[in-house]
Design a protein around this nucleic acid. Sequence first.
RNA 1: GCCGGAGUGGCGGAACUGGUAGACGCACGGGACUUAAAAUCCCGGGAACAUAAUCGUUCGUGUCGGUUCGAUUCCGACCUCCGGCACCA
Length: 813
Amino acid sequence: MHYEHIEIEKKWRRIWEETDMHRTNDDTPKPRHYCLDMFPYPSGEGLHVGHWRGYVLSDVWCRHMKMKGYEVLHPIGWDAFGLPAENAAIKKKVHPAEGTMMNIKNMNRQLVEMGTMYDWSREINSSSPSYYKWTQWLFLKLYERGLAYKHEAPINWCPSCRTGLADEEVIQGKCERCGTEITKKNLNQWFFKITDYADRLLRNLEDLEWPSRVLTMQANWIGKSYGAEVIFKVKECDEELPIFTTRPDTLFGATYMVLAPEHPLVKTLTTDECREQVDEYVRKVQSITELDRLSEDKEKTGVFTGAYAVNPVNNEEVPIWISDYVLMSYGTGAIMSVPAHDERDWEFAKKFDLLIRQVILPPDGNNNLESAYTGEGTMMNSGDFDGLSSRGGFEQVVDWLAEKNLTRRQVNYKLRDWLISRQRYWGAPIPMIYCSNCGIVPVPESDLPVLLPYIENYEPTGTGESPLAAIPEFVKVKCPNCGCDAKRETDTISQWVCSSWYFLRYVSPHEDAVPFDEEKVKIWLPVDLYVGGVEHAILHLLYSRFITMVLCDAGYVDFQEPFVRLFNQGMICRRSETSGRLEKMSKSKGNIVNPDGLVERYGTDSLRAYELFIGPPEQDSEWDDSGIEGVYRWLRRVFNFVMDTKFLEGREMSREVRRYIHTTIQKVTEDIERFHLNTVISSLMECFNNLQDFNRKHPGRFYKESVEEYLRLMSPVTPHLAEELWHHLGNIDSIFNEKWPEFNSDFVKEDTMLIVVQVNGKLRDRLTVPVESNQKFVEKTANESEKVMSAIKGKTIRKIIYIPGKILNIVAN
RNA sequence: GCCGGAGUGGCGGAACUGGUAGACGCACGGGACUUAAAAUCCCGGGAACAUAAUCGUUCGUGUCGGUUCGAUUCCGACCUCCGGCACCA
């Protein structure tokens, strides 16, 4: 009999489908487990071996949980709206609706071929009206709660995708999707008020079982800082300039102020003599891209406005400058500048020859600074506050100014509100109506969904309006309030909104009256284990947390955090043909490995096992085709062994075999639970080598139960092969309805133990002694060893260290 | 610059809370089977020295120090690679 993997795998997939093996039941007395893969977008390129990794990982986990007695919810669906899908469609000149359907079909085939246990009856698609109806509903809920607002602001604009983007979608000044440099564009846009939740989003991080780097990334992104808002009065003028500082203890060192070029008071403050250069500078700043503005090696630029402010602590007059290193979107858009104790201010002061005054003495006593000193120290040149520590000074300066109503304690966040309008076709229309009588009117819930019309010219316009604006039948509408002619909002909702609630939809994917069945949400959520790449560390994971909190506040769900445990699988890398370096697999880098050929040659089970065997799942790994050979050999040997051996009936194992099996049960179970899937494969291979050895040495003494136990252990990794051999042994029911093997520690005990004998920490001999031996006996045996004797010859024994069952170390000199 | 992660044979990697470094696999070498090859099976591989083989000795987990009877594991300094963030006052 040959190991005909193709036929075996096809056969079992068919049977599993016919018998509804992977259907998840809501009504069950079993404990429940919700394991979720991150929402994939239907890409035309399909899945490569890098994508496989995450899906195999979660599938192995789920199959193991099922055998452990859990009712497992393991659904899948498609993040089908949005830029990726639409950009691909435009490139191939296919309508996004059709392109998306084609891609879904292909990826669906691949996921099925992987032998995954998804419950396909729960498949969802974020671009279907039955889904996006509820994305629109979500928008209305946020609007009702004052968390969705329209606002004109200079937003991130991608000239290539021709749409606005959220801050989170701009990576180092470039578009997250296409890499084009981002510019600013003033547009009237819809935002979600995620900043209202900044503090909760930060605090709740403590309770999450997430990789620490993701927690750190989120905390940094939220960027909470404690400080004070201090008011500087403008000289000879009624205007006030509030600034935010985290270092009120350095106020006496504030020798000038800087406003963002976009600051509303720039026009008012600028003197006639300076107006020309200020106007020119403002124009220049507006014209450069975000990337250039942020670039690190850029020299500081700026101009003097001609105006002066008064430093509230010492009534000193300080010049007011403008510079693009001050951002309008953080704090108040204005800063006090303390060049002696801030690197950026130092650089600026040096360049424009502004006064630098040291007000903090470092612990080393240096009072002649050659660069900004940003640490803590003792206050100096600070009037009555001299001699106070930075910390004490912070409090006292604030208290003193607060009495004069010139300051208050203040917490600031880097997090900005979430821009969700997209000037693109392929998304859920924002369910809002503009009426000349009533203003902004939400579409009544009963009118949802606002259907996305099927149009021929869906390409982005670049005018700042979506292609929908050119469709009169879409735009024209009656005001739901007064019945007059009104206009629809024509922007669409960012796909990140679609994916920030999808995990709720899986519990009741066909529900028509509500977005999700609240009772079912109660029994299944929050998600117990979320598996996906680290690339979503900020974007998707932050948005989903926010949306869940809002739904919790609104009483739709009873938990704040959607994902209890998160596992990030490492990327599969390969040398890129273009750069020659190890890089993440992607079509553009030309380093893709297509799984289809490998599946044909070695089978799905081999590829599944190899995806795990390649390395620790949380780390990046380099792909190497040749390694799969070894995994394939193992599976074929198992197949041949089971097919060719005549096993003894009866539920009994020989002692030696039982020890191998139980050692492996323990190891495999522990390793799956710790996600060490690579060593799961090693131990399964090792165990099989031992079993086969035993069978060669003692032919005809192998019990069926032993193989069955082994097959159970293999089954999450190689489901098809395990199922085939399971049935070959005469079992009728599926192996996945079996229980996970129980480990029994009595069965791994041996009669003897190995004691390593060291002299001065160096290995000298290995002793095999009965397990019940005490230290005295071990010492005596060691003393009889020639190797040990020669090592301690002529030396005095100073100390003996004995670790029971492990080691005996003799210290002698 | 700041914050993470990593550095172990020719290669991927293993070693749970300090206790036999190199499990498992790839590639390689030798052998068996074969007319031959492929496939399969068996055996062997960290390095150096030594030896006719064996026995053996020394070195060895990025570098240099430290703690310890004992360090891939803990501490300190540094080097390299990868990832994230980056004018957030």
